[in-house]
Design a protein around this nucleic acid. Structure first.
Lengths: 118, 118
DNA sequence: CCGCATCCTTCTGGATACTG
DNA sequence: CAGTATCCAGAAGGATGCGG
């Protein structure tokens, strides 16, 4: 998979993927969260996928993982300083998403409200 | 593939994917472009993938396709009004990408500059 | 010049069952 | 509680060749 020349491409590849921005959004709005809390806030995600995403974000310096060796063990996640840079992106995405939702936009269907007005 | 509750998810699924933001960036910075011009500006993309992306963006009301029935035929693409909403997202992505690039960030490697400073 | 059809390969997300 | 290991299905990316 040859690298695209665009500098945005590698960043995009890391922060996209099924649940990634949702995780970032939650850590941004709720602050530090435990694994189980994240599971609770995302009812449809599986433990494996959540772990995958968190580990990937950790490798990339975007989230910080803190393990407390208690019984039962507790692990919590928070955004790193760099991870917080992404709030601009996530907020921009959220703004447009909400705006388009209000216009009736749906993937592969476009903007029904606008077409009807023609 | 059950829909995630997050309103950002469908939008994200549309504008991500290997070349999509690059296309949006070019249409945003260069304005209207012909198919061949886009190919020239993205040396590594294949015609099929470019067509796929453009058709998908067209279906979603993000780009406008204009065909001129000349010989040889010319087809040009530009952002729709809604497509221009995305410049906020693309600009945010670009800002962070450039910032992180300056810090030595690489996918799956994190921020070497910061780790060295510890 | 622009694009469609076909086929193939890779990557991703997810289900399920098990562990310290 | 917070994972790990394995396996699988489907989607996405891409190469190639034909067509208006």
């Amino acid at each position: 998979m040859a690298s695209n020349g665009c500098p945005v491409d590698p960043l995009l590849r890391t922060i996209t993927g099924r649940w990634t921005t949702h995780i970032l959004w939650l850590l941004y709005t709720e602050g530090e969260l435990r694994f189980g809390e994240l599971m609770g806030l995302m009812p449809d995600i599986s433990a494996k996928v959540l772990t995958d995403r968190l580990r990937m974000l950790e490798r990339n310096g975007i989230v910080l993982r803190t393990q407390k060796q208690t019984i039962p063990p507790q692990v919590s996640y928070e955004l790193t300083k760099q991870g917080q840079d992404l709030h601009v992106v996530v907020r921009a995405l959220n703004t447009v998403a909400v705006e388009w939702q209000a216009l009736g936009w749906e993937p592969d269907k476009g903007f029904p409200a606008l077409e009807a007005a023609e």
